[in-house]
Design a binder for these strands. Structure first.
Lengths: 232, 232
DNA sequence: AAATGTTTGTGTCTTAACGACACAAAGAAT
DNA sequence: ATTCTTTGTGTCGTTAAGACACAAACATTT
């Protein structure tokens, strides 16, 4: 692992932890960005993140969660590592290493805090092309988007973009905006049955036509992966 | 991404890059470990790796490759990030962050150099339980193993454990040792056809019975993923 | 030379899960 | 009462993997 260097005297690269937090609202995939308050890229949109605080963070996961909470008041329902980006050119201050997380949440968790604040905002991923984004964060968001799409094809992960109680129609809609293609409701229902992650509430909710069954995630279950992808 | 800290004065965690390099020989999955020459864990087996040298490494990928080359004279045929491990307890010197890569190679590349050297060795992953390994590297190797197993179920990745020319039987055998279960040769052949990554050589090779067709990877092709897993 | 054994390669039937689509069920609006 | 909309179910078709039989090709034995 390491050679015989003393910690204090070794020249470490700049190390940060960022998060790509997605949600789905109004049929659009949105990513949470914050406005940079300091150099470099002051005033531009960037991924929420920062430095590890070794006194309070048990590990990097905690850094990611803490920074999301501090900057945007959001606690994501799903969090996993995306990738670690490194190199000389990605930060004008010098060689940098950034551990990037991939996170999901229902939009509810945040609306109160975020929509009123000017320096943190949900941005439609589709409108990102014309937006100026700090560092290589636009590229990173695109990578995260690909990861989310793949996960939507073979896992139940998109449920973490939904509120506590939700219908098959909402689940289907979230999946469709993520993968950019319609899917059969039948396929969704089959997967819900097979995964055995959800339980029906004794409640139904109006939805324009016949009332829709409400579901919620069973307590203590892990995310389920399928052995076959939905069609691309 | 970052707050308004000066690079020089910020207290960064200890950052290292390690690699879990696998190969398959004699029906066994093996991982390349090196004997530690310095504290902590002197004399114990550990993953090959070290610090980023910002003067020569363009990014962390290059650090991983350079360290593998330096310590074991191996250039892997496949390299991707596994995970970044962080925390206070994993290194007695303090809070540490380790970016771990996942790599594959045919055993050929290394045999000349490694088998003669005492401080780098291919270790049978099955015999790892009874071996003392530095840091949390035993746990990391297990995570890498799970990743390799998953990849073997849905991708052509195991070809990178094979020499340049190989037969369906060898490919089948590698997959079987990785996933710990026999598979149908027919399934392998179907996947080779569908992936269109391999080309037949005009050469066949003896194999105990009927001569076996030799294959090699077409030049310039990317790794192919399938939309369905092999059975577990 | 013939028989046996071993591994490779092919043909084909079965199985599992998704796609497509029709249709019934349940509510709202006209 | 009729129509519209969304939910939920039943069923057939499609696709790719599993199982398995069998032919092909080579080595070894008799």
């Amino acid at each position: 692992m390491t050679d015989n260097y003393d910690i204090a005297e070794f020249k470490n690269p700049l190390f940060t932890v960022d998060s790509v937090l997605f949600t789905v609202t109004d049929g659009e995939l949105k990513v949470l960005l914050v406005k940079r308050a300091s150099e470099p890229f002051t005033g531009q949109w960037a991924l929420p993140g920062g430095f590890i605080d070794m006194d309070v963070d048990h590990d990097a996961d905690m850094t990611a969660l803490r920074k999301l909470k501090e900057k945007t008041n959001v606690t994501p329902q799903y969090l996993e590592q995306l990738h670690t980006y490194s190199g000389l050119e990605r930060d004008p201050r010098g060689f940098s290493v950034t551990l990037v997380y991939f996170a999901l949440t229902a939009q509810m968790n945040t609306s109160t805090h975020i929509t009123t604040v000017d320096d943190a905002q949900w941005i439609d991923v589709g409108k990102l092309k014309t937006l100026s984004v700090a560092f290589d964060h636009k590229y990173i968001i695109e990578q995260a988007r690909q990861r989310l799409k793949q996960k939507a094809l073979y896992s139940m992960v998109p449920i973490y973009c939904l509120p506590e109680h939700f219908t098959v129609g909402q689940f289907k809609s979230v999946i469709e905006t993520i993968i950019g293609k319609t899917v059969q409701r039948k396929s969704i229902i089959r997967r819900i049955e097979a995964a055995d992650m959800l339980e029906k509430m004794d409640e139904k909710v109006k939805s324009g036509g016949r009332f829709a069954q409400l579901y919620r995630v069973k307590s203590g279950v892990d995310i389920v992966n399928f052995e076959r992808n939905l069609s691309v």
